[in-house]
Design a binder for these strands. Structure first.
Lengths: 245, 245
DNA sequence: GTAGATTTGTCCGTATGTATA
DNA sequence: ATATACATACGGACAAATCTA
C-alpha cells in the first residue's frame, strides 16, 4: 500500500502551485480560511495547517483581521563569486539542478568574444548554448565560449551534456575562477521567452563572465540570461570580501 | 546677457534625452531628417548638425538610403566591490556625480532592516532617501538606513546632503566595507519612474547591500534601484577576488 | 469617530491511524 | 500483542486585529 499524502500537504501544494502560476498575484489576498475550507471540503484547521506551511516558506503572510496575503514569490538566490558553479550553487539551496543543451558548435570569435578571451578575432571557438533548470523550472539561458585551439577535444564533452567543470578537468584544467562579471538588465525577446517559459518583454538579468585558469589565462567567456522573476544574484561576504585571513 | 544655446545643440540634447529615456529604442530607426526638421521647425541641415553630434557620441548611426538608427545606449559601468563608493565610482568613468536628497527621517526598523543590521525590530533608524545622478541624469534611487542609537547625530549630516562617507568619518567610523550584495530585477512603479525620468514598468536593478565597519559590525543597510537601461553593475577581478596578497 | 461585521489567532476537546518501544 | 507517543483531522468557542458602513 502507498502512504497517503496528508490532506493539508495536498492543499499546501495546490496553493503553492497556484501562487507560482500567478493565479494569486503578489500582494493580493487569498480567500478566507473559511472559504478555502469549503473549497477543499475540509475543516478550517486543516487549511490553517497548509497556510502555516506556506507562511513558513515565506510565500504568504497572514494579518489578523485582514486576511492572508501573497508575498512576492521567493527567488532563488544564485551566488556569484570567484568559484561560481551552477550545480553546487543549486544544491546549496536545496534545489535539483539540471541542464538542457540546445546547441553546440564550432564558431569564429566575434570582436567581443575575442577581446574577452584574449584571442584574435575569428579565432575558432567551441560554443555551447543551453538552458539551466532548478526543480525542472527554467532559470537561465547560457552561452559559453572556449578557445578551440587550446581545447580541440572539448566539443565532444560539451555535446554530451557533461558538466563543464568535469569536462575541463578531463582536459587538464583542475580549477578555474571568476575573473570578472558584468550584470545588466534586458527584456526577453520571443525566442528567449519561449525557452525560459516566460512572456516576451519579461525581465532578464544578463551576467557576462570571464573565467580564468589558475595561471590567470582566460578560459571561458560566458553569457547567462537569468529570469529576473526567479533569481536573485547574490555576492556574499567572504566570496567578495577583500581580506581573507 | 546669456549666451544663447545653438539651435542644433538644443535639438541634439532633446534627442539625446529621448533616446536615454527609451523613447527611441535601441536598433530602431529615428524619424527621417525631413520629419525631424518639420517637428523642430528648422532646416534639415540644422537637424543634420544635431545628428552628426549624436553619431560622433556613438548614440546613433546613419545608413545612407536607410535612415538613422539608434545604437544601444552606452551604459555606465557601476563597479560593485568591497569598497563601493558612489562618487569615486563615477569619477573613475569620467562622469560628474551628484546627489539629490529627497527625504530624511527617523524611522523604526522593519523586520528586514532589523535583520540586516543585527538590531531588534522597531529599533530607531536614520533613513535617507535620494536620487543619484551622473552628468545630471538620474541613474538610481537609494535608501540608506543607519542605527540611530549608535549614531544619534547622523540625522543632521544626512539632511545636509553631505557625503555619507564623510558623515561617518566625522562620527568616528574611518572606513566601511561591503559585506554582502544581492541583485535583483524589478519593474519601476509610477513614483520611481517619475523620480528617475523613465516610464513606469521600465526595468530596474535593485542592489541590496550591507556595509560593515572595520570591526565587522553592520553599519548601513542600503537599497539602490538602478535604471537598467543606464547602468551595468560590474564585479571586477581583484575587487571580488578571494585572495588579496 | 463609532459600531458591527469580518477575519485571523489561540485555546479547548475528541477521534483515528501509524510508528515505536 | 500491548502500551505509548505522535501526527492528522474535525468541531467549537472566544479573543484580537482589521475593515466597512
Amino acid at each position: 500500500m502507498e502512504k497517503p499524502e496528508p490532506l493539508w500537504l495536498a492543499i499546501h501544494d495546490t496553493l503553492r502551485d497556484e501562487i507560482a502560476r500567478g493565479q494569486w498575484r503578489a500582494g493580493s489576498r487569498l480567500p478566507t480560511e473559511a472559504d478555502l475550507a469549503q473549497r477543499f471540503g475540509v475543516n478550517r484547521h486543516t487549511v490553517r495547517r497548509a497556510l502555516a506551511a506556506l507562511a513558513e516558506a515565506g510565500l504568504v503572510q497572514a494579518r489578523r483581521g485582514a486576511g492572508v496575503f501573497v508575498r512576492a514569490a521567493e527567488r532563488l538566490p544564485y551566488r556569484i563569486g570567484p568559484r561560481t558553479r551552477f550545480h553546487q550553487n543549486l544544491l546549496d539551496t536545496g534545489r535539483a539542478p539540471s541542464r538542457r543543451i540546445l546547441h553546440t558548435a564550432l564558431a569564429r570569435a566575434t570582436e567581443v568574444e575575442a577581446d574577452a578571451l584574449s584571442l584574435r578575432p575569428d579565432a575558432p571557438l567551441h560554443v555551447v548554448e543551453g538552458i539551466s533548470l532548478a526543480d525542472d523550472q527554467p532559470v537561465s539561458l547560457f552561452r559559453s565560449a572556449f578557445c578551440a585551439t587550446r581545447f580541440p577535444e572539448l566539443g565532444r564533452h560539451l555535446a554530451s551534456g557533461d558538466s563543464i567543470t568535469r569536462a575541463l578537468r578531463a582536459l587538464g584544467v583542475p580549477d578555474y575562477t571568476r575573473k570578472s562579471t558584468r550584470i545588466s538588465g534586458y527584456a526577453a525577446d520571443v525566442l528567449q521567452a519561449r525557452h525560459l517559459e516566460i512572456a516576451p518583454g519579461d525581465m532578464l538579468l544578463l551576467s557576462e563572465a570571464i573565467n580564468i585558469d589558475p595561471d590567470g589565462r582566460p578560459l571561458e567567456y560566458g553569457r547567462t540570461f537569468f529570469v529576473a522573476a526567479r533569481v536573485d544574484l547574490v555576492l556574499d561576504g567572504p566570496e567578495t570580501g577583500a581580506i581573507v585571513a
